[in-house]
Simulated scan of single mutants.
Amino acid sequence: MLDERLNTVLSYVEGPTLLDIGSDHAYLPIQALKKNIIKKAICGEVVEGPYRSSKKNVAQYGYTNRVDVRLGDGLEVVEPTDQIDTISICGMGGPLIASILEKGLQTINQRPKIVVQANTYTYPIRKILQAFNYTILNEKVVKDKHHYYEIIVAELSDEQINYTEQELKFGPVFLKRRDELFIDMLRRELEHQQRIEAQMRLGSSLDNIKQIELKISELKEVIQHEG
């Protein structure tokens, strides 16, 4: 049922209760229940179509009494009596995930683990996690065909979290471990930025070129780092 991306997310989920935002047919909660990772789940959908699809899928698998599918915006679906152990948000851009966390985390009374899978631009996610004093436990890149997906796992810390700008941009765990897929992802991004730079030199302003040059320099620094 799950692809490698969501199976990786599943490996970080802890129960007994999962809150899955943007659930997309409720595949992740259903699989978590089948594997006895959780006892119950809440699925949040902001659009009517996916909401109905999730409810239908939950019913087909016989989990209507264990999965509560709710229609609402982000973490607004959480009720005061809910006890959430893990929040998962998958398949969205980094800025949208960050916005959902920023608007909703202050209303969550518990200390849930957070597992997110971003399609693009993870910097704002790390900024928000730091702002709410979440420490990043794990980071992993999953490649599907030509796409690279970043997964970030975090938990609330009792100590003040302060990441460097480089850690916020590239990931503290990624920078430490330097996994092969992470470096491959950066190399691909470097090639992309170099193509943009070449196009810009045909007619863009100096300021725009300098911004691209900075990105290229930062990418090269991480790729070429010898630790």
Rank of each mutant, 00 (worst) to 15 (best):
T164I: 02
I161R: 06
D179K: 14
E189T: 00
R187S: 04
P172R: 09
R178V: 12
I152S: 09
R187W: 03
I183Q: 09
K176Q: 15
D184E: 14
L168E: 01
E189Q: 03
I161H: 09
L186G: 04
Q166V: 00
E155G: 06
E150M: 12
T164L: 03
L168K: 00
L168T: 00
N162V: 09
N162T: 03
R187D: 05
D179S: 15
Y163Q: 10
L156F: 11
Y148S: 02
E159P: 04
R187N: 10
S157M: 04
K176E: 15
L181M: 11
E180L: 14
G171R: 09
R178F: 14
L156N: 06
D179R: 14
R177E: 15
G171P: 08
A154H: 11
Y149E: 11
L190M: 02
E167Q: 15
L168R: 00
L175Y: 14
M185S: 15
L181K: 15
K176M: 14
K169M: 10
E165R: 06
L186S: 05
R187P: 01
Q166S: 00
Q160Y: 13
Q166G: 00
L156S: 08
D184W: 04
F182T: 07
M185D: 12
I183A: 11
Y163M: 10
A154D: 10
D184C: 10
R188D: 07
T164V: 03
F174D: 06
I183G: 12
R187I: 01
